[in-house]
């Protein structure tokens, strides 16, 4: 299967197989006019299979969230057909409206229009806690 290479944009590589649609949703890629390719179950030397997302434009996307969703992801920034930057996303200090606090005693369970804010309290172990009730939030599988 052939997918055109991109001139200017991002290649989000080494996505855990099956996670690409979730990442597509989190990055709101469905709202873009630009070309986006999702490649599922591509061959990988390292892991056997992987998903890849290609975005055919250098957009201002919130790549921090990727560090939370899958720390093994690689992001390739492409300019004029060349990889100009290659990096792993870092864990963001804050997640806003990404994960919902599941503590039934938390104020987020009843207060309307309250942003769901989670803060990184332990970078080493990638632990986030709800800003309001301080309960640990579960990472999506």
């Amino acid at each position: 299967m052939n997918i055109d290479s991109i001139k200017n944009g991002y290649v989000i590589d080494h996505i855990k197989p099956g996670k690409s649609l979730e990442i597509y949703e989190y990055l709101n890629l469905g709202n873009l006019d630009t070309q986006v390719a999702i490649i599922k179950n591509a061959k990988s030397k390292k892991t056997g299979k992987k998903d890849i997302i290609k975005i055919d434009e250098l957009l201002d996307i919130n790549i921090d969230i990727l560090g939370y969703l899958d720390p093994n992801i690689t992001i390739n920034k492409i300019q004029n057909d060349k990889i100009v930057e290659k990096f792993h996303p870092q864990l963001p200090e804050r997640l806003i409206n990404i994960v919902k606090c599941k503590n039934p005693r938390c104020i987020t369970s009843i207060e309307q229009n309250l942003p769901q804010i989670c803060e990184l309290t332990d970078r080493k172990n990638a632990i986030y806690r709800c800003k309001y009730c301080e309960e640990k939030v579960q990472k999506p599988e």
């Binding site: 503590n103 005693r105 938390c106 104020i107 987020t108 369970s109 009843i110 207060e111 309250l114 709800c130 800003k131 309001y132 009730c133 301080e134 309960e135």
Partner: peptide, 10 residues
């Protein structure tokens, strides 16, 4: 005083 955790912060 409120029964929900984080209410005072809000």
């Amino acid at each position: 005083r409120h029964p929900k955790e984080g209410s005072a912060l809000v």
